[in-house]
Write a protein that binds this DNA or RNA. Structure first.
Lengths: 208, 208
DNA sequence: AGCCTCCTTGAACGATCGTTCAAAAAGCGC
DNA sequence: GCGCTTTTTGAACGATCGTTCAAGGAGGCT
């Protein structure tokens, strides 16, 4: 039983790497077997089929966003808006680390598996939602630095959009600069929003 | 000879649809044969292999961006900045038309085929570049409405980022609203840029 | 030791993949 | 009608896919 749980996590761990680098469809069960040094029977003893491994992988990403992503990204960063750009900086680091071959594992799987089972699709959506929820918290923490009445949820989704689009273009052109320019544009947007909030505040105080 | 050219375009046309809906890897040659009502030999008489069909598809997208995409999107739109949002509106229409199953064909292929041959990768990058070049022209036409010294190329890439990210999230959540909110955020960004340019201009005229 | 359960072994299955090719058909100048 | 090239036919190939399963080993309980 302990061995089974051990094998399960080994399989999930290997699948996370393989699905990320090759995609779900192009990763064969044989790939997983050779990577984990297991036999087919052992794998199918733990998982009913290949798709169940995908579900386990997506659950692992969903549940591990804090430890695997936000934790490392936010080490030593307190300012809520800087936390957002530190998160994007983490992706920049991943791009560099992989010689511009990095692709967001969730985004890639989302595009590949758009007509998969509802179970899979819901997990993909949940992963996106978890990501934007974390960013949204930062935006809420920023308080009055952003204009009143701003749609913070929409802006959090826009940060995700910037990340996904930047990663996609950087990988396609094999050049981080595409990611950097996207982040720079988002930074400018934040600066403009902060400036607008400051003008609003100033006008308000003049009236009082 | 005429028949061969005819078959070639039939195959390319079928492949554009199939690669778009199923992806490259999940589209089998048998799928293409049944869709085109051809036999294997006829296909392999025209194309050396499956990948060459992909190349032809990407070339067709690259060369047809004007007629297939920009033309329909810009019918009756003159304002350069509105042309950008008309282009995004075209994608919104595509999302609705497909019940939120739409994915940008280039973006999807770019994520799926990131370690393909250089020939394929270059074509993917060329498709992105063609798209951003069209947007960039609009930005140039906008002239003084945008701040001086603005990196127009970067902003054009940012428009592509918004489109790709919005399409990805809308499809994953099966909800156009995700795309709409992304476009709204971009619209806000443009409004802020235009306001900034207006303030700059006003200040300049006051000095003169 | 005996028994039962949990886990692993690894060969084998049928399906499907991209691709090949000898043979037949069609098109064309004469 | 004849000869030559271009195109089509469709069965077949070997490889690989996800999956199955009878057989055997490992470890615990009585």
């Amino acid at each position: 039983m302990i061995a089974a749980r051990d094998n399960r996590s080994r399989i999930v761990h290997a699948a996370m790497e393989l699905f990320w680098s090759k995609g779900y469809g192009s990763t064969s069960v044989a790939d997983l077997l050779s990577r984990t040094q297991l036999n087919a029977g052992s794998l199918y003893h733990v998982f009913p089929g290949k798709q169940d491994i995908l579900v386990a992988v997506l659950e692992a990403y969903r549940d591990g966003i804090g430890e695997m992503l936000l934790g490392p990204a936010w080490e030593g960063v307190a300012d809520p808006i800087e936390k957002i750009f530190a998160l994007l900086g983490r992706y920049r680091w991943l791009i560099l680390e992989t010689d511009c071959a990095y692709g967001c594992p969730i985004g890639s799987l989302a595009l590949e598996l758009h007509h998969a089972d509802p179970a899979v699709r819901d997990l993909l959506a949940a992963n996106f939602s978890g990501w934007t929820a974390a960013v949204r918290e930062c935006l809420d923490d920023a308080g009055a630095r952003l204009p009143a009445g701003l749609d913070r949820q929409a802006l959090a989704e826009f940060v995700l959009t910037t990340m996904e689009g930047g990663v996609m273009q950087a990988r396609t052109h094999r050049d981080v600069a595409y990611f950097d320019r996207g982040v720079a544009a988002l930074r400018r947007h934040f600066d403009l929003l902060e400036a607008q909030a400051a003008r609003e505040k100033e006008r308000e105080e003049r009236h009082a």
